[in-house]
């Protein structure tokens, strides 16, 4: 091509077409990358959902010889974290795609999977520690062995992922109630979700999406409160300590 489109404004059709061809390549490359990231995000979502089910499963399954709930919880968390390594590998694999200023260009495409991952990770973390995973801890989990992040974690993804956690905790609390020792779990979760809701409340002005999810969190909290209420009402009627009540029921129902 004899034309030198760079040296001045474009006077001929050929020159214009040559320049627009570079635009085409740019746009095509962008769209292809976007597609790859969307697919990656779908994979992340699916794997993370499975981890959440795994955690629930371990926390509700029968144990031959009942051990303290803490043991079970750390075992669940360990297994969950193990599985989440696969997800972390998926994030590592897109590292090159979202390098430098590109991350913010594709943030919306990475976000859905990322939030589901944070939901799963924070669930495992809660089971293990009884605490909310911190922003830095999540960012750390998304970093290589030298602590260099695959990409920057956004506050919004962090908060929205945590907001979904409260829904899973509600499920966890409700199913715990029918188990031995479940009352304590329900009460702990109630306190924890209550404090989550309070923490998020101060942050809702900043994110519209968080405001919507906060409504769901409030509903979840109410469901947990209703459940702990039912426990309280029941136990108040009898003058026995809670552990003994569990034993009586176990004896009768033969489980």
């Amino acid at each position: 091509m004899a034309e030198q489109p760079q040296t001045g404004s474009l006077k001929s059709r050929t020159a214009i077409v040559v320049v627009f061809e570079t635009f085409r390549n740019e746009l095509d490359e962008h769209n292809d990358r976007r597609e790859r990231l969307i697919k990656n995000s779908r994979d992340v979502t699916n794997l993370s959902k499975k981890v959440i089910f795994l955690l629930h499963r371990i926390m509700t399954e029968d144990e031959p010889t009942p051990k303290p709930n803490n043991d079970r919880a750390s075992r669940a968390a360990a297994k969950g974290r193990e599985k989440l390594k696969e997800v972390q590998n998926l994030f590592a694999s897109i590292r090159g795609e979202v390098e430098g200023d590109r991350f913010w260009r594709y943030q919306r495409n990475v976000s859905p999977g990322l939030q589901e991952y944070i939901e799963a990770l924070s669930f495992a973390h809660y089971l293990d520690t009884g605490a909310l995973i911190s922003f830095n801890q999540v960012q750390q989990s998304l970093s290589d062995e030298h602590g260099v992040p695959y990409f920057p974690l956004t506050l919004e993804d962090y908060l929205l992922g945590l907001s979904d956690l409260t829904g899973e905790l509600m499920r966890y609390a409700i199913s715990a109630i029918s188990q031995r020792g479940g009352r304590t779990i329900a009460r702990e979760v109630c306190t924890f979700v209550r404090s989550c809701r309070a923490d998020f409340e101060t942050l809702t002005p900043y994110y519209k999406e968080l405001r919507k999810k906060q409504a769901v969190t409030s509903q979840s909290l109410q469901k947990i409160e209703d459940a702990t209420y039912a426990i309280a009402v029941r136990t108040s009627e009898y003058d026995l300590p809670p552990e003994m009540l569990d034993d009586v029921v176990a004896m009768v129902s033969g489980s």
């Binding site: 109410q222 409160e225 209703d226 702990t228 209420y229 426990i231 309280a232 009402v233 108040s236």
Partner: peptide, 13 residues
Amino acid sequence: SRLAVNAVTMGDF
């Protein structure tokens, strides 16, 4: 209505 529930949980009937 929420407080009615939680009061009971805290033992205030």
